[in-house]
Amino acid sequence: MTLFDYLNINEEELKEAVMTSNLDNVLKSAVVLILNEYMEKERDEYLETAKYERVAERRDYRNGYYERELMITVGRVKLKVPRTREGGFSTSVFEKYARVDQAFMLSMLEMVVSGVSTRKVTNVIETLCGETVSKSFVSSLTAQLDPIVNQWASRPLNVTTYRYLHVDAMYIKVRENRKVVSKAVYIATAISTDNRREVVGLKIDQAESFEAWQSFLQSLKRRGLQSPDLVISDAHEGLKKAISQEFVGTSWQRCTVHFKRNLLKALPKKMAKSFMADVRTIFMSSDLEGAREAKERLVEKYAKEPRVQKALDILEGGYDEATQFLNEPSRYHRYTSSTNHLERLNQEVRRREQVIRIFPNEQSAFRLIGAVLMEADERLQKGSPLR
């Protein structure tokens, strides 16, 4: 079932918009229809009664609508916001559905205000916003959005126990003191003891280093994160050292996907396919004993083949770190062997970030990436627990 099936969209109105408007107006019309109907559903759920339904006991009564504007990527739209007689109902649309759009727009607005955008970008922004862009206009928007993102990014982590922690870093470009510099974005997700995944950490810092990773892990601890059973990441030396110092007694799992890539780079093309097929049998094992036996068979098979000795050395050197996930219950192996899900989350962030290309400042980057992660985290919380 699609969103249009779920919502009671007036197809004639939408068809009229398509026939008589340009593309931006079509998108705006569709957004207005969908969000108006969504808010209507929210009010119905709040009142626990359908329109025109008569019940003896009810929470409140419908009391018409008021108009409110919402700025989205394609421009400003005017919505009919439902209200109730006693005023207890509040829609989630303006906070939830506008968050990423607002963060994206603010990054572009700040580019205009700081004078680093092209004339084309300036014209587009002013057209979408319907007014000349000013510092006060930008400030009024940031004042609404920044506290929401900041509160989410600093929320307490001591209300849930987390069993597994995934960490990774990606790089972005930011303007700083009139220069374009590279910054590392540190992101952490975790799996709780009730089998739910959650985005637990975001921090922007200088290039990856032991000190930067240590600061990030310490920030998680200050918010209440206890030492997890396992931390899963790539093999950055500074990160490994930070994990060992900040989470005493925690095991470290080297991402098997990154490990396999390292092995592949060390192999001649003609032998890569068969060698990697044997490597996969190691990580498909259900326990450490089976993995060790598979590794020994591989080593014995290629012991006299000089062209793969470099790959064998890498395998021997990283084997123990790449098989720590096999100490955990088998139901968690698919979630703890790699950082794949975090890579997908990074791609989601990258999709928005590449449109901006160079952030006008660090707070702008934190706002947009934080909004994207908040959206992803909300989807995770509404989803089913990991099986």
Rank of each mutant, 00 (worst) to 15 (best):
R196L: 06
E211C: 05
E211K: 14
R178L: 08
L225V: 05
R223Y: 11
M170K: 13
R222M: 12
A190W: 09
Y164T: 04
A207S: 15
R163C: 09
M170D: 07
W213H: 04
Q218E: 11
K221E: 08
N177A: 13
V181Y: 07
S182W: 05
S227G: 08
D194H: 13
A188L: 02
V199C: 08
S192V: 07
K203N: 09
S215I: 04
R222Y: 14
H166E: 03
V181S: 08
R196S: 03
R197I: 02
V185M: 05
V167P: 04
L225E: 10
Q214F: 11
S219V: 02
A190Q: 06
Y162R: 06
T193Q: 08
E198N: 10
I204W: 01
N195P: 02
K183Q: 09
L217H: 05
R222T: 12
I187T: 13
L165H: 08
K173D: 06
A184Q: 05
Q206W: 06
A207N: 15
Q218N: 13
P228H: 09
Y186G: 02
R197Q: 11
T193P: 03
L220H: 13
R163K: 15
A169P: 07
S227R: 11
E176P: 04
V167M: 03
H166N: 09
K203Y: 12
S219M: 10
I187C: 07
D205Y: 06
N177F: 13
L202N: 01
D229F: 12
L165I: 12
R196A: 04
F210M: 04
R175N: 13
S215A: 13
V174I: 14
R196F: 10
A207P: 11
E198H: 14
Y164M: 05
S192H: 09
Y162I: 01
S215Q: 12
A207M: 11
S192G: 07
A188R: 03
L202A: 03
Y186F: 15
F210P: 00
S209K: 00
R196T: 03
M170I: 09
Q206L: 11
Q218F: 10
R175L: 10
K183D: 01
R163V: 07
T193W: 08
E208F: 01
S227H: 13
S227A: 15
A184F: 04
V181K: 14
Q226S: 15
K183E: 02
R163A: 13
V200T: 03
V174F: 15
L202G: 00
F216L: 03
F216E: 01
G201R: 04
K203F: 07
D229I: 00
Y186H: 09
A188S: 14
V185I: 11
E211A: 14
W213N: 00
S182M: 07
N177Q: 14
N195E: 07
R175I: 11
K173Q: 12
A169F: 13
M170G: 15
A207Y: 13
H166K: 11
Y162D: 00
D168S: 12
D194S: 10
K173V: 05
A184L: 01
Y186P: 03
A212H: 14
R197H: 02
G224S: 09
E176I: 02
R197M: 06
Y171W: 10
Q226H: 13
